[in-house]
Design a protein around this nucleic acid. Sequence first.
DNA 1: CTGTTAGCGCGTTCAG
DNA 2: CTGAACGCGCTAACAG
Lengths: 343, 343
Amino acid sequence: MSRTAIATKKVTIRDVARLAEVSYGTVSRYLNGNEHVSTDAARRIAKAIEESHYTPNKAARSLAQQRTSTVAFIVQVESIATLLQASTAAAMAEANQTLGDAGYQMVTLIANSEDSTQRIAQLVQSDFADGYLLFSLSEDDSLINIFRTAHRPVVLSEASDRSTAVSYPAVDFANADGQCSITRYLLDQGKIRLAYVCGPGYSPSSSKRLHGFKQAMGAYFDDSHVYYADDWEIASGEMAAVEFQPMLHDLDGIVCANDNIAIGVINQLRRFGYRVPEDIAVTGFDDSPIATMMDPKLTTVRQDSWLHGRVMSQLLLRMLHGEVVDHQTVKLLPTEIVTRQSA
Amino acid sequence: MSRTAIATKKVTIRDVARLAEVSYGTVSRYLNGNEHVSTDAARRIAKAIEESHYTPNKAARSLAQQRTSTVAFIVQVESIATLLQASTAAAMAEANQTLGDAGYQMVTLIANSEDSTQRIAQLVQSDFADGYLLFSLSEDDSLINIFRTAHRPVVLSEASDRSTAVSYPAVDFANADGQCSITRYLLDQGKIRLAYVCGPGYSPSSSKRLHGFKQAMGAYFDDSHVYYADDWEIASGEMAAVEFQPMLHDLDGIVCANDNIAIGVINQLRRFGYRVPEDIAVTGFDDSPIATMMDPKLTTVRQDSWLHGRVMSQLLLRMLHGEVVDHQTVKLLPTEIVTRQSA
DNA sequence: CTGTTAGCGCGTTCAG
DNA sequence: CTGAACGCGCTAACAG
């Protein structure tokens, strides 16, 4: 006559029904918030659930209901370094929060190889999640195509400039605007002899930021003053500064594609004996944590990664609620110049 | 008479069977590597699968088979800042790789609130995954308890010093050893007047590292030379240095619980006019990316987070393969002193 | 308002 | 070696 039955085996909806002395159809209705359940039955069911420690089985439910109450956050990384970026983690955390508040469980998948892409494709095709956030920092298209057959909403983290066959709504930062603004900030100070360090070719943001720089420079733009880096790392910034060495003495500033690169540039500039910002001003992009850890602190373009994750989730939620959203939709998030010491 | 049927609706195992002209039981056997399928049937089935773009449905399969071929990587964070740590991301990436190679899809869940813990508990109780990696940097027990009823293997990222009711195999770093070694490194240089900045109380690593310091100091240990920080951040290091100010002039070194704190200490020390390491040596712990970005570069204790993720996964895989592992098992990963400039 | 029943897609006997 | 039938746990449509 033990009061609290020890959960020896899986307790199913049928056990609850038996305990509450109703049919299990009724229990199902109760569980799904159906109106047609007498308050009396409801009370007994609630009690039975409590006593039996019942938890509905996800797999069975999603099989019958064709929805899973989870959304997948798929991060596609060119190199694992991307995964380590604070911006990725921030967007991930905020998306998790936003979706969680709406009753969805977020699961994160990492696509960093042919194999993992394959596995993920399989999951997607069996409707593993109700919706997808594709957080990608690469131009690789292989992942985006796996959603064609799954008729589930998808939101991208980046506006692709190329017109691919398939496309989904996207939330991105105003990369070009940001780089354009900070360049103008330099120009307005009379620093007009500028060089640019561009990010890796595989990244759309790279070209957008370069575009912003070009726009601000107008006719003064000179491609020989652009260094094209292979990645987003500090070492690339150092290499850029080395490359620029011959022309350094008549340069007012160097605009960089991101903070890491800017740090590398500054490090190398100092080794060459230049002072920052007195001799040469340097700007970054991202406002990553290290921007304030450096000396001088970085003047940079701030983008709110938390906001990125939140807006992507909100858009996806609206789509999950049935709202139809044009696949060409692109939401551009504002950027902001943060003036510190390096420029 | 179209060759390649357009995947209009969900294609099930039945469709494949029809195409291959066998019963769907046979297809199921083929799919699960059962011997008893004639090579002729196998060939026809393979062809049918190819043509129909068939993908087995995860939910249905896991419902019938009671396994999901996925493992969950649950990261429990006291504050979101933890999630931003490079070490977490590294372990995550490597676990994803290791599990992926073994045919398991890793999904990451973030537990950062009462709600999210609740949702995750529900998933776990419906056998959402075949196994669990609990990556936790907090002492909160609420999560660890949700695995009691789920009879699935679990591996922890940290050895708890407290003897809780439930426990699982764990993989952790030799925190005490590491801190002990680097302290001895200072002592051996004749720097014997040392202070210590301890990490936050909620973290087990905190106390273990402090323990290592105590061990190295032996009788010379003096609790008044210990500052107890509230978190792992730079600001805490700065506060510690302020706290230590009165005794700074007769201190040879400050051993810190992690790199961030060490950086804060160094920053503040400089403001006070002390040179590092000439006047006071400072050591960190983690060998995080910023350790080499600072000037002076940090002398610190290196721990291989990739290895952490890999070993945790390997242990879990063995358990998934049926090997029984004592719940008290603790695998300690080696740490290593990295000598740079700050000490 | 409630019990009954037919699937959801697939694994697994169990005969044949 | 293969086909048929049942069950996994739950939802939803349909009678009552």
